[in-house]
């Protein structure tokens, strides 16, 4: 008996398609349209051509936000590409109690980003644990401005991202390491390769596809960083707003009853372009390497 109809696949796809259209495609198109207007949350606006994009050229804050987002990405990428891999290699060993360490390293991932960032704020403030300990032990005479110096603030946020991301990417690598042939390792060992040599010549090529995936994930999330910087700077973007990320800048212009949706949408388009760029580059590099 034939029970399948031509529309069966569409029925099954329907909910997902509707979701995609309403919550992904429609907002994306609307963002493109709004970028060419001076729209506000109420009352729309009028078309302003490329005025919002011209405004970007004279926006000092945008320069700072772009530099911060790019530095964030450039520092996070290597750290979150290799540290979780090294951690996964260590935790892959079948030792007694290893499950405890795997769980411990994963715990920051399931903790709320806001809560974690608040804890870090308490640790890093002038009278916080880090400065207090360093002064007690005689390493510092004055507290370091972790939360009020532009670059220290940025690197504090990067440390938080790396600490929180370690466990997540470690789990991805752990599953990938399971597919790396043990025989290759053994053969390399027989040929006299030490642990470091085996890591570079066997492990890394074995998880290269996963490394690409991790690179893309890290790049995108680093360029779109928000929570860490927002919480560590109490939403102010640091002294003079010079530690804002691009997403924070978008948020600054878009929120509220009189949000400047046109300019915020133009900034969103810029973020989209600079996020897609590195992703395409990474994919191209991988294809070449393959």
């Amino acid at each position: 008996m034939k029970t399948q109809r031509w529309f069966t696949p569409w029925l099954l796809l329907g909910p997902a398609l509707v979701w995609l259209l309403v919550f992904n495609l429609w907002p994306a198109i609307n963002t493109v349209v709004l970028a060419f207007t001076n729209a506000k949350p109420l009352g729309g606006g009028s078309f302003t051509g490329v005025a919002n994009f011209e405004r970007m050229l004279n926006d000092d804050q945008l320069v700072y936000a772009l530099v911060n987002s790019i530095v964030y990405m450039l520092v996070c990428l290597p750290l979150l590409l290799f540290l979780p891999l090294l951690l996964a290699v260590l935790l892959e060993k079948k030792l007694p109690g290893i499950t405890f360490f795997r769980t411990a390293f994963y715990t920051p991932v399931i903790a709320s980003a806001v809560v974690v960032a608040l804890i870090w704020t308490w640790l890093l403030e002038d009278r916080g644990l880090v400065n207090g300990l360093a002064q007690q032990l005689g390493f510092l005479t004055e507290p370091l401005p972790f939360l009020s110096g532009r670059w220290l603030l940025l690197f504090s946020a990067i440390s938080l991202t790396v600490w929180k991301g370690l466990g997540y990417y470690m789990i991805i690598y752990l599953s990938a390491l399971g597919n790396v042939s043990r025989q290759l390792h053994e053969a390399a060992a027989v040929d006299g390769a030490g642990p470091i040599r085996r890591f570079w010549s066997v492990t890394v090529p074995g998880v290269r596809t996963t490394m690409l995936l991790v690179s893309v994930l890290v790049t995108v999330s680093a360029l779109r960083v928000f929570t860490e910087l927002f919480v560590l700077t109490n939403g102010t973007g640091g002294p003079g707003g010079r530690t804002m990320s691009l997403v924070m800048l978008i948020q600054m212009y878009s929120r509220g009853f009189t949000g400047h949706l046109g300019y915020a949408s133009a900034l969103s388009l810029l973020l989209f372009v600079i996020t897609v760029g590195p992703m395409l580059l990474l994919l191209r590099l991988n294809r070449k390497a393959a």
């Binding site: 102010t236 002294p239 003079g240 707003g241 929120r255 509220g256 009189t258 949000g259 400047h260």
Partner: peptide, 20 residues
Amino acid sequence: VDQAMTDFINQQFSLAISGE
């Protein structure tokens, strides 16, 4: 004076206070 204006003003004041 909306939220974006307030944020920007506070940021500029912060730069002035810090002496930058």
